[in-house]
Nucleic acid binder design. Structure first.
Lengths: 130, 130
DNA sequence: AGTTGACCTGGAGCGCACTCCAGGTCGTAC
DNA sequence: GTACGACCTGGAGTGCGCTCCAGGTCAACT
């Protein structure tokens, strides 16, 4: 089974342009072509794409994703470095989550303040008119 | 007490250029100036900056931070909208955290796989030689 | 009086990750 | 056989968030 670029875009959630872009910058190995020269993405291509989009979601820069992509071609020889990249990224992600959680506290605090002010605004006038 | 731009940069963790940039794009009200025309940041300026950097950390686009900044000038009149922005951002942050946690699982799974492969590589040769 | 160093301005430049475009090819449907 | 739509290519353009630069001012020190 293989997929047209439109179908691959639909399944990966990336745009057609982005798929071609990823191929250009060597994030993605050039997929097979059909008889008319059109890209025919394989199941493996899509699997790799879905992992790529995960890495992207974690905020990994394309530079690094490309390094990882290149290392795949070296099989076991590149495995150590590939793992190291993932371990490093896991660290970055946990740090990012912690950072976001701190910000969440600040946001909650601020929002609570607005709540309290609203409370005052809606109750004080009654006291003043009393 | 007021602070030079260098001092404000040090305290906020932003660069001097970024401070001037934030002022230019109206994220930051123009600070006071000393007799020589140099910026003199107040305590309040720094407080606002530290909140701004929090918002930035959450991934809020500058556009939106600017909207929030503008609403501050309208006092109580802008409070509802300001709160709405924070509530919306809180939602975005919790979603982002959830997304990152999903990615974390994928990373852990992949890393575990590398661990297992390493295990195999280091133990199999002994079995083979037996 | 001269040098230094921090600061000033307006504007240009940069890296990232796409996104869009013009002009062309191909296979299918009418 | 021609109209259509999906696809192709190389290259230019975009939005974001800074970052850097040239050329100038000013206060303090020697």
């Amino acid at each position: 089974m293989s997929y047209s670029i439109a179908e691959a875009a639909r399944r990966s959630g990336l745009s057609i342009d982005t798929l071609r872009y990823y191929e250009r910058i060597r994030l993605l190995d050039p997929p097979a072509r059909d008889t008319a020269g059109r890209r025919a993405y394989s199941e493996e291509d899509l699997t790799w794409l879905s992992f790529l989009t995960r890495l992207r979601t974690t905020g990994m820069p394309i530079r690094r994703m490309r390094e990882y992509a290149m290392l795949r071609h070296r099989g076991q020889a590149g495995a150590g470095r590939r793992k190291a990249i993932l371990v490093e990224q896991r660290k970055a992600v946990t740090e990012r989550i912690a950072e976001l959680e701190t910000c969440l506290e600040v946001l909650d605090y601020k929002i609570d303040n607005y709540d309290r002010v609203e409370q005052r605004v809606t109750t004080l006038p009654q006291e003043a008119s009393a």
